[in-house]
Design a protein around this nucleic acid. Structure first.
Lengths: 201, 201
DNA sequence: GTCTATAGGTTGATAGAC
DNA sequence: GTCTATCAACCTATAGAC
């Protein structure tokens, strides 16, 4: 349930974030959102102009702080960061446990290749991808730019999959407790080894 | 365009496969499908009972042969397969280039955690997951079952992400040509190293 | 098996009172 | 800013003629 101690605009954002993550963007109607937020239907079109603008606002509210933290951690790692430092700077700001409620939304954004969402994705992430691919290339000078991009895609896909299944995990993996700290460590270990691996199949 | 040289039922499956992959399950209406297939709207409910049954049929037609090939390759690898052999047996049947038209559909299935699709996913993949997790555990005896499951999740996520972006890749990675043979090799190398990596972060 | 026609319900968005 | 009421468009599914 969405807290009533905040203004209408925030309640709409909170409800939309929850339902978009849970059921997807297409399957969530504006009526579902206003019912969850306990606000009037017309309030959505008053505060946001359209459903697409609402999606943009919902995503931007969560992505921008994550990206800022990523760039801060990238900078804090100094001029010659290790591969592990780079992976943590990229993954940790999103996989923090206090963002667990946002995992499903982020997973939808990462894994839904619709035209509008792809545009949104590029708008919010092209700078991050650029900066980190430079850093990865510098950390692995023997690896060409194409290979770096594939390895980043693999890592992002692994992360997206974990985020999308975070809540379903107990069902899919009954004896495995989901703990974001542990999974982050597992993923960093996995991806770091993958980045360092040379061709030879 | 869907070929007219096949029967109505197949034309519906072909059109649905294309549009579900392109625009998602929710965003694709039965009208979209019958228009693309050039058949009458009522034919969908005649040949399939409902939209959910249609989705099931569309998925089953492609997943079952892939799973059969996976089990064949697993068996053909003998009693003591290498990690690389296991990864190829899991990944190659789906990432074959002659299945490129099916990539978007498979990516949607893998990356959409809706209740109905999760049920579909489990129905078609639980046997595969069981068999391969046993085989991975046997190939990496020093790795406990939980870690094996995470590493499989990471690998599946990397694969799903590549499949979902296969057609968008030229746009997201302008100077990288998508070639399923090359990407398969890159992914096997990446994942094999990730599987062998020990904790130590 | 294939068609038309339509029932019955939902959707995003807006007009206009307060 | 918030509400009610409503529009026009869309949806899945089915009944019934051929």
């Amino acid at each position: 349930m969405i807290s009533r101690a905040v203004d209408t605009k925030t309640r709409i954002l909170d409800a939309a974030e929850k339902l978009f993550g849970q059921n997807g963007f297409d399957a969530t109607s504006l009526r579902d959102i206003t019912a969850e937020a306990e606000v009037n239907l017309a309030a959505v079109n008053y505060h946001f102009q359209s459903k697409e603008s609402l999606i943009d606002a919902v995503v931007a509210r969560r992505v921008e702080p994550v990206n800022q933290k990523r760039l801060e951690m990238l900078e804090a790692a100094g001029p010659n960061p290790t591969l592990e430092q780079l992976l943590i700077a990229f993954l940790q700001p999103l996989m923090q446990s206090d963002l667990a409620q946002v995992y499903p939304l982020m997973a939808r954004l990462l894994a839904t290749p619709d035209a509008f969402l792809t545009r949104l994705f590029k708008k919010h992430l092209s700078l991050i991808i650029e900066r980190f691919s430079e850093a990865f290339s510098q950390a692995l000078p023997e690896c060409d730019a194409t290979q770096i991009r594939w390895k980043m895609q693999f890592t992002a896909g692994a992360m997206a999959h974990v985020l999308s299944r975070a809540y379903a995990m107990p069902e899919l993996m009954p004896d495995v407790k989901f703990d974001s700290q542990t999974v982050l460590a597992e993923l960093v270990t996995f991806a770091a080894a993958g980045f360092r691996a040379k061709e030879g199949i």
